[in-house]
Design a protein around this nucleic acid. Structure first.
Lengths: 120, 120
DNA sequence: TGTACATATGAACAGTTATTCATATATTAA
DNA sequence: TTAATATATGAATAACTGTTCATATGTACA
């Protein structure tokens, strides 16, 4: 049972974590970490990022996305569902056609941060 | 907005893509989309996000991370390797111990954006 | 009605990935 | 040198995920 010592924990002298009370301050929030990882998991797919890049140019229907990305309508629809559930995109129906668009400017910001990081 | 003309593609009247030339402007950059998705893929893991959250509090060695997250040293080390390759963390060696820390403030920003999005 | 079109979805399969286990490497001290 | 400690890593496995295929749902119009 490591880590219940009063001064140091067992590992490498405990340079950073001197006391047990400090652990609570350092421990990340479980739910927050889970939700954040789930969000990035959605963004961590080539097809979904491509879809979002297309949506950044304006709202567009499912079959147009499929044609642009040279993929089946089914594959795109499945991924739009994932993006929808993560509230990264919104949609509106106009007759037979469903138009998708970026949910809010926040999503653009996250994508921009990502692009900025890779281009350094 | 609905402007149907002869140069439309086959699908749903081509409301958004009026001409073939427009396709090039809408098509996202392949490499950029790939790199961004790879970056978010790294951020899309519960363990790695937890590690980054711990690192946000300051630099810390591998075994301390393992203890804090109640995981094996091996599992943490494997994930630190992934984070390292994505240049999300940096490290310095001091004797037997290796201390990891957030690569730059940019990473904090991306994480903050993620947290902001989920807490709305 | 019935047909055509646009989209959504369940199931299955292939490819990917995070953890575990065992072991290797690296550093320090006796 | 040998022992002890901290970290890294290759291989195997179980779990997860994206695409395809077939089909269902929803909408418009003859």
């Amino acid at each position: 049972m490591p880590g219940t010592n009063e001064q140091d924990h067992s590992c490498c002298g405990g340079r950073n974590i001197e006391k047990v009370e400090d652990l609570g301050k350092i421990m990340p929030c479980e739910e927050e970490a889970y939700d954040v990882s789930e969000l990035f998991k959605v963004l961590g797919d080539y097809t979904r990022v491509n879809i979002l890049f297309v949506l950044q140019k304006g709202e567009i229907c499912v079959c147009d996305i499929a044609q642009l990305l040279n993929m089946t309508q089914s594959a795109i629809s499945h991924q739009l569902r994932v993006l929808k559930q993560a509230r990264l995109v919104k949609y509106r129906r106009d007759g037979k056609t469903v138009y998708y668009s970026i949910a809010d400017s926040h999503v653009d910001t996250i994508l921009s941060m990502g692009i900025e990081h890779i281009s350094e």
